[in-house]
Design a protein around this nucleic acid. Structure first.
Lengths: 114, 114
DNA sequence: CAGATAGTGAAGTCATTGCTTCACTGATGG
DNA sequence: CCATCAGTGAAGCAATGACTTCACTATCTG
């Protein structure tokens, strides 16, 4: 029984992913990481928040596969990660099918209405 | 011209969208709406929450263009909306480009100072 | 008309979140 | 060594979020 969803994320995973992206600071971190790897301090500086705060955000981003980090010496280097992104796209693709179907059928009705 | 919305969302809009999708109840509402329009009560029943709660979620979903509602008589009929969905895909496309670029060219460069 | 139905608005509760400070560990370099 | 520098863990705090209940306004229907 393949009860596991191949549609991508289970509920909890989708929660984590969307909630992670729902925070502007976290998206700013990802944007910065998209330009290249960075240390925690390198992220904290421009953002105007503490190292601790960045570290916490990093935890969330790693938790849903949007970023990965590894520590060399006393410096933690953070990079962007594909996995979470792929899951996100997967969720969207899985849902777009049914949504679009419905939207298509609905478009006319709504347009006709005054 | 050139699209009224570039990368789509400004920060605040992305916030609303991702946060809206970050809630399981809201996603459940959307799933149900994907199967066809429904009244507020029709949504509340299966979800096991009050009409008020659904009404609040609906406000959020409308606020970011993921759903639309109209009231006929005393019944509010809710439908899924394309706009928010398109914005979501737009955001993803816009960001996937740079992310993929970085992920593809992933070297072991050290973090750069900004 | 009375009475049920469908939904809204305004609080209020309880948990979560984003951030901070403080105390601390480990590298690193003079 | 000793003084920093980069980061972490644990509390704590203010703000937000997801619900609820209660009171209330329409809107049907018998």
């Amino acid at each position: 029984m393949m009860g596991a969803r191949m549609t991508g994320l289970g509920g909890a995973e989708a929660d984590r992913l969307f909630q992670a992206l729902g925070d502007p600071t976290r998206r700013a971190i990802l944007d910065r990481l998209a330009a290249g790897p960075s240390s925690v301090s390198g992220l904290a500086g421009p953002l105007g928040i503490t190292l601790t705060a960045v570290s916490q955000h990093l935890g969330v981003l790693e938790g849903c596969g949007l970023a990965s980090t590894r520590k060399a010496g006393r410096v933690r280097t953070c990079s962007i990660e594909a996995a979470g992104f792929d899951r996100l796209q997967g969720w969207i693709d899985a849902h777009r099918a049914s949504w679009d179907r419905r939207l298509d059928a609905l478009g006319d009705l709504l347009a006709e209405e005054d």
